[in-house]
Design a protein around this nucleic acid. Structure first.
Lengths: 114, 114
DNA sequence: CTCACCCGTAAGACAAGACTTACAGATGAA
DNA sequence: TTCATCTGTAAGTCTTGTCTTACGGGTGAG
């Protein structure tokens, strides 16, 4: 895991509204408008938060058609678990360095991959 | 743990520079100016980050006097470990509700405390 | 056709965070 | 005294993130 991924994840979870969203989704999948109603959030705002959560891989969205033919986007919580401690931090920093080294090393040859 | 505490912690760790700071401190305690030099950060900026880290309880600062009588603030990494998953989120949300309930319940009487 | 749902995005106001430059004070050494 | 260390903060800029308002289009029911 790179620092970029870790940061995306921490930033995604680290917000009051998004905690509430996760809390609500923990009860089960819901479509966007319904979710907005339950949390008293404007739909555009909710979209913004969902985008962030989705990018970090915390939720997954599925556009489906209901029985009466209306399009509905259902949001589902993706399982996640990260231990945050000194070891994790050191690990991502090391990963970053390795990637940087690999990138600069692969510039001339091109066969150093994997 | 309340959501406020969790958010402070996540926000504290969730930043590139602060990851680097933690990484450097993992090697051992350092005084501020030296730390700033190692990370190529301006001292005022480092102060800002340290303040955030300290508030979240991730680092501890100690003002000491060196052998030649100069004041030096040593920064030390505090042990920390948090598991971030759905359970954690639900736990802090529940904790929030309990606190809110306790606060509003204690307004009139004063004897309802646990 | 109008109403009540649903989807999605664009634009701009506003607040929070990150970062720089500049300052002020204290010590010991040359 | 002047220089090289260290401490700390205040002010202002710039960038990022949050949030609201205002649009656009689609479906089925009355």
């Amino acid at each position: 895991m790179t620092s970029e991924e870790l940061l995306a994840l921490l930033a995604a979870i680290g917000h009051t509204q998004r905690l509430r969203i996760i809390g609500e989704l923990a009860k089960g999948r819901v479509h966007v408008s319904e979710l907005a109603r339950r949390l008293s959030l404007s739909r555009p705002l909710l979209y913004m938060h969902l985008e962030r959560l989705e990018k970090a891989g915390l939720v997954v969205g599925n556009l489906e058609l209901s029985a009466d033919g209306k399009a509905m986007k259902f949001i589902e919580l993706a399982p996640f678990e990260v231990r945050v401690d000194v070891g994790t931090v050191l690990a991502v920093l090391r990963e970053d360095e390795e990637r940087a080294a690999a990138d600069s090393g692969a510039q001339g040859s091109g066969g150093t991959t994997t």
